[in-house]
Design a protein around this nucleic acid. Structure first.
Lengths: 184, 184
DNA sequence: ACAGCCATGTAACTCGTTACATGATTAC
DNA sequence: GTAATCATGTAACGAGTTACATGGCTGT
């Protein structure tokens, strides 16, 4: 029965488990707010492709709302919920993948002068702070709906995890930067 | 002059800047040891594809060594070094991408019982420790070749960054786990 | 002789992206 | 009226994977 879909498909399906029905467009917005920080934010076109696939497997159902067959809302089906729970329990869970262009550039730092590397890391600290602020705003927006029995309890746990990750990354890079500045 | 290759291509090219010439096979091994932790470890077939592309752009040169036209070693060219330095200085550097299947599953923890989520995180702590041990071994293997002016100075900085990341991730997950255990 | 590793490559395929096309609704 | 946003989709492409095919070299 287990369908074995790509992970992004399960991720989008998961975003439909919070008690509301969404259009493809709205689903993309939710992905931009949450999924982006620890998975990917799929392109608009892929959201529609995935919704069509999920509907083909009977994991979501489409319901027309607007007058012109537009704005159809998607709802997760009972089968979709079972499928998601099975996926969640399936072993083994893949190890996280990190694609870190900054670390990658630091690796070949011997090709350029130290000032370039230092500038690279300073820029990174800036974008890290900006990204952290975005996530902090998301976390704040869940306040009041994040109690133990409320739908956004787990999303808020994940958001807090992300904030701690950003803080730790900042600390590590700051320390590294001090080290490079002393050498250079 | 800037070629604008995929990042994996620059990454593999970067692995050829440490003073030795490598066969495709050896390059794959080096990627498995280092690149894997903060980028990806490309499939064997892709390594050969990328080497062919790099050679086509004149960024690496192939030199036959074996009798049967096999075991040809690849060496980065002067043009390749210039290209890499340009890439390193190019702005802006992309923000890291994290694909975190564990966080993704935690997000929809409301679909399963707490024990499942707790088990998931415990498993993750285990694989995290294993991965950290692998990286620690890599870092140790660089000792003696990691001084300021030596080729593996920057790789060792990156490895230490990775070790600190793993430690921080472990701390965050352990705290989260305690929180879930108290609730459940 | 056989296993296991070294070594290279092609073909088919999936995932996901960007570019493009189209049109409705809302706010000013 | 017109710009911005809402909304949905198709087509072409690129990056990267798995499966497959091939054969040499090394140790026991």
């Amino acid at each position: 029965m287990s369908q074995d879909l790509p992970t992004t498909s399960y991720a989008l399906l998961g975003l439909l488990t919070f008690g509301d029905d969404l259009t493809g467009y709205e689903l993309k917005q939710r992905a931009d707010r949450t999924l982006r920080f620890y998975w990917v934010s799929p392109a608009m076109s892929q959201v529609y492709t995935e919704l069509a696939r999920l509907a083909g497997h009977g994991l979501v159902s489409a319901r027309d709302a607007g007058p012109n067959k537009r704005s159809s809302k998607y709802r997760i089906t009972a089968k979709g919920r079972r499928e998601l729970a099975t996926w969640l329990e399936s072993e083994p869970v893949e190890f996280p993948t990190l694609k870190h262009p900054v670390a990658l550039r630091l690796l070949i730092g011997h090709l350029v002068d130290p000032a370039t590397t230092i500038g690279l890391l300073r820029d990174y600290l800036g974008s890290l702070a900006a990204r952290r602020a975005e996530l902090a705003q998301v976390r704040e927006s869940l306040r009041g709906r994040d109690d133990l029995d409320q739908p956004f309890h787990h999303p808020s746990l994940v958001a807090e995890w992300g904030l701690e990750y950003f803080d730790s990354e900042r600390d590590i890079v700051e320390k590294l930067l001090r080290r490079l500045e002393e050498q250079g």
